[in-house]
Amino acid sequence: MNWDILGQQIWNGLLNGSIYVIFAAGLSLVFGVMRVINMAHGELTMLGAMLLFTVTSVVGLSYFAGAALVVVMMALAGFLVNRVTVRPFLGHSELVVILSTVALSFILLNGSLVVWGSTPKGVDKPFNEVLQVAGVYMTTAQILLVGVCFTAVLALYLVLTRTKLGKMTRATGQNLLGARLIGINTTAVYDATLIMASGLAALAGVLIVLISAASPNLGQPLLITGFAVVIVAGMGNVGGAVAVGLFLGLTEALFGQYVSTFYRQGYLYVVMIIVLLLRPQGLFGRR
């Protein structure tokens, strides 16, 4: 066995896994707290990537300033997402909310195609030196990606477990009526949840451009991958989504290297189907 190749594939898997983790965490958070399937989550990530392209290549900001600006802007947009496409429909059937987020994803995707066109856009990376660590080639941009992802997940964990907002968020997710009864402003919690989720989605977007190009079409496949991750983990379980996202990213890369490159894309779905057959509620799902 060639250890260098193994190491390289683990690193590649870690890169993809980091994106899966941060994307699926937001998707799962919204479902866990609000019982909303956000069909527009992929387009929020796409918008993050495209806006980064505009503020860096067109406006001329540096990558870091641009990324910070985009993430903050998109987090604030999460407030609008809640007020326009989620909150007005909460009294109705859960399906109406799905439809309104579908409408939002229609608008974002096709609006982006009108604005940016469908050709992928490259974004200048802040630094891109190639390092060799223990036989594994990695670029500094990739290290940045993994580092930021883990920091973000850690921050999300701390917010959810150590702050009052996190406590209120979890309480709302566990029992909406109970949370209201003890005086939690669930409207504000819902706003905060979508602000966090939208920020995470945009963060995934600004990080994706470090390893691939920005394109209006990157949202849909990512959404499907994200759903595969949360299905395996169990909907609404943020911690499970993080663990499964990382696991699937790593094993997907190893599968591609040692089993079959051609069926690599099918790997996620095969894992998903096995989990669905044995535990339809997901590995970490309750019930």
Partner: peptide
């Protein structure tokens, strides 16, 4: 038979989404 034994509502929606996406990929 697989899905309805254990899931209802939004969980069922997600499970069937999984089957749908799998079929599309295949």
């Amino acid at each position: 038979y697989i899905a309805l034994r254990r899931t209802r509502g939004l969980e069922l929606a997600i499970v069937t989404l999984g089957f749908g996406v799998l079929a599309w990929t295949v």
